[in-house]
Computed example of a mutant assay.
Amino acid sequence: MPLPVDFALPDRAAAIFFILTLPACGWVALSDLRHMKIRNAAVLTLAAIFLVIGPLVLPLDLYLWQIVQGLVMLAVGFALNLARAMGAGDAKFLAAAAPFVLLPDAYAVLVLLSVMLLMAVALHRSARRIPQVTRLAPRWKSWGARKFPMGLGLGPTLSLYLAVAAFG
C-alpha cells in the first residue's frame, strides 16, 4: 500500500540518490553515536554525490536551484552554530543534505525529521539505561553525553525520505 505522500523528487533520481547516500547516512548516525561528531568526510561524501550525480538525474535548472538551497542551509546552519543552537557537524550535514530535498517536499521532510528525532531520542535514551545494550558498545561517547547525537535522527531521515520518494 503506497503512502499518502507524493514527493516532488523524481522517482529515478530518488532511487539513485537513496542507493548512493545510504552508506553515508549510516556513517553519520554511527559516527555520532560513537564519537559525538559527524565527520567532515561523511558530509563531503554526501555533497560530492549530489554534485556529481545531480546533473545526471535532474534538470539543470533544478540542479542549480538545489545547490543554492544547500548554500542557504549552510549559512543558516552556520548562524545556528554561532548561536550555539546546533552543533557544527549537524549544520554541515543539513547543508549537504538540503540539495537532495526539493522545496515542495520540505514540509513533509520536516515532519519526518521531527518524528525521526523523537524516535531516536526515545530509543537512545532508553537503550543507554540498559547495561546489556551499553556493554555491546562500551566506548560510545553518546552513552554518557548530556547532548544528543543528532546524526542518529538526521542520517536516517534523509535515507527514509529518499526511499519513500523512490519506492513509495
Results as ranks from 00 to 15, higher is better:
56 L>R: 14
107 Y>W: 06
25 C>A: 08
69 Q>C: 09
35 H>Q: 12
149 P>D: 10
71 L>Y: 00
45 T>K: 05
97 A>K: 00
47 A>R: 03
152 L>M: 15
115 V>M: 13
88 A>K: 01
163 A>C: 15
156 P>C: 09
166 A>I: 04
153 G>R: 03
136 L>H: 03
165 A>M: 05
102 L>P: 06
157 T>L: 06
24 A>G: 07
23 P>R: 07
51 L>P: 00
42 A>N: 11
31 S>R: 09
118 L>P: 02
81 N>G: 11
160 L>E: 01
37 K>S: 04
127 A>H: 05
37 K>N: 10
97 A>I: 09
95 A>V: 06
141 K>N: 14
146 R>Q: 12
90 D>Q: 05
36 M>I: 00
49 I>V: 15
37 K>P: 02
161 Y>R: 09
64 L>G: 02
67 I>Y: 08
73 M>F: 15
142 S>H: 06
131 P>K: 08
158 L>G: 02
157 T>V: 08
10 P>G: 08
133 V>R: 07
149 P>Y: 09
37 K>V: 14
78 F>V: 14
5 V>E: 08
51 L>T: 07
48 A>Y: 00
94 L>Y: 00
5 V>M: 09
134 T>E: 08
121 V>N: 02
68 V>T: 11
11 D>V: 12
149 P>K: 04
73 M>K: 05
141 K>E: 13
14 A>E: 06
108 A>S: 12
3 L>W: 12
55 P>T: 10
109 V>M: 05
72 V>F: 06
162 L>S: 13
126 S>Q: 08
89 G>W: 00
77 G>I: 09
150 M>V: 01
164 V>C: 09
57 V>K: 05
35 H>W: 12
14 A>T: 02
95 A>R: 02
142 S>Y: 00
75 A>G: 10
136 L>I: 10
49 I>Q: 10
70 G>L: 07
128 R>Q: 13
79 A>K: 07
106 A>K: 01
14 A>M: 03
101 V>W: 09
124 H>V: 04
147 K>I: 03
20 L>C: 14
2 P>T: 11
92 K>C: 06
156 P>F: 02
6 D>Q: 14
33 L>P: 01
42 A>W: 03
53 I>S: 03
96 A>Y: 03
112 L>S: 01
38 I>M: 10
46 L>A: 11
10 P>S: 12
114 S>V: 04
130 I>P: 05
11 D>Q: 13
136 L>S: 11
145 A>W: 11
85 A>V: 11
9 L>Q: 07
70 G>R: 11
129 R>S: 13
52 V>W: 11
153 G>W: 03
93 F>W: 07
51 L>F: 00
10 P>W: 13
133 V>H: 03
102 L>M: 15
163 A>V: 10
10 P>A: 13
57 V>N: 07
9 L>Y: 01
138 P>I: 03
162 L>R: 02
40 N>E: 00
161 Y>G: 08
59 P>T: 10
54 G>I: 06
160 L>C: 13
91 A>T: 06
150 M>K: 08
76 V>I: 15
16 I>Q: 04
